[in-house]
Write a protein that binds this DNA or RNA. Structure first.
Lengths: 159, 159
DNA sequence: GCGAATTCAATTGCGAACAATTAAATGTGA
DNA sequence: TCACATTTAATTGTTCGCAATTGAATTCGC
């Protein structure tokens, strides 16, 4: 063999960029799954999946809203929300009623049980905080960075 | 009305923590979806979905590996990977062969076409970089923070 | 060696997630 | 007014993602 250097494959920037652990998207993707797995046992006690929990969070802040509104707040479309909301309705946590003013609109409102579940849900965030092994400050700072990234990505999609 | 203060609902820490936009998990979750939507048109040209692209990235680094190996690198289990890998096999990008040494193991290897696709994929990361509207340095720093968070979450799950 | 536990992939069933389409209601412009 | 576009949910079909189970192969304890 003449020289080792001849055998060494040139590592271009493009090669580096294709490495799995260089990808921020994979970092985000795998962290989302990790969160999901941490949330699961907590949410099982509430009888909710994580996306259902997100819908409930949104409704606890403001309910009697169209499906469209929820979709914009959660970045989800009707193809995802319609069946999910039907399951929440079957669980008697929400009511779905068609608006009288505009019959295209379905309004989502909390039931008594849906309201009541909020109290049980209060224990969830602190459990997650503990699992993250971070301070509130660290998490908030990180959250702001991630949201900024998300909003830039969504801005590109809107073009 | 006696006093406004009586009417103001006391905002406890628990209430604050339940706000949708205070949740880092929602930030991560919604950013993952935003990435997915940005990747979609790029990956369509390669004939891959995002999870399939992740599998290919892993295989371009090291192939002839058991399904289990892939699962550990991508944090996915056989319930997700088996059908996904069958689709990649149908697309003739990979081969699935049962190991002769241990017949429980299915080894995943790239085909010629699977290898070749790597060249086409090189254009993807730079497009994502552009869409993120961040510098490489910013993204790498953020990636490291997110990965650290993910690893702490996964550590809790492992207990 | 031999029975029990473990490992590994596949399968089944359910719940997202989204693209594309459909259908109904509403709005708009000539 | 009336054709036409727009808005809004719902539906359909495909692909993840995971829990739970199955079944085959291997390893371990004794």
């Amino acid at each position: 063999m003449d020289s080792m250097t001849i055998m060494v494959r040139k590592q271009t920037a493009a090669d580096q960029a294709l490495r799995l652990d260089n990808q921020i998207c994979f970092a985000v993707y795998s962290t989302a799954h990790a969160f999901n797995r941490v949330y699961k046992p907590l949410l099982d006690r509430l009888g909710l999946t994580y996306p259902q929990y997100l819908v409930m969070l949104a409704l606890w802040e403001r309910d009697d809203v169209p499906v469209k509104d929820l979709g914009e707040r959660l970045f989800l479309d009707s193809g995802t929300l319609t069946p999910l909301l039907k399951r929440l309705e079957a669980a008697e946590l929400i009511r779905r009623t068609r608006s009288t003013e505009d019959e295209r609109v379905v309004l989502i409102a909390l039931t008594q049980q849906g309201q009541a579940l909020r109290e049980k849900a209060k224990a969830v965030p602190q459990s997650i905080l503990a699992a993250s092994d971070c301070t509130v400050g660290e998490l908030l700072a990180m959250k702001d960075e991630i949201v900024a990234l998300r909003d830039r990505l969504n801005a590109v999609l809107g073009e």
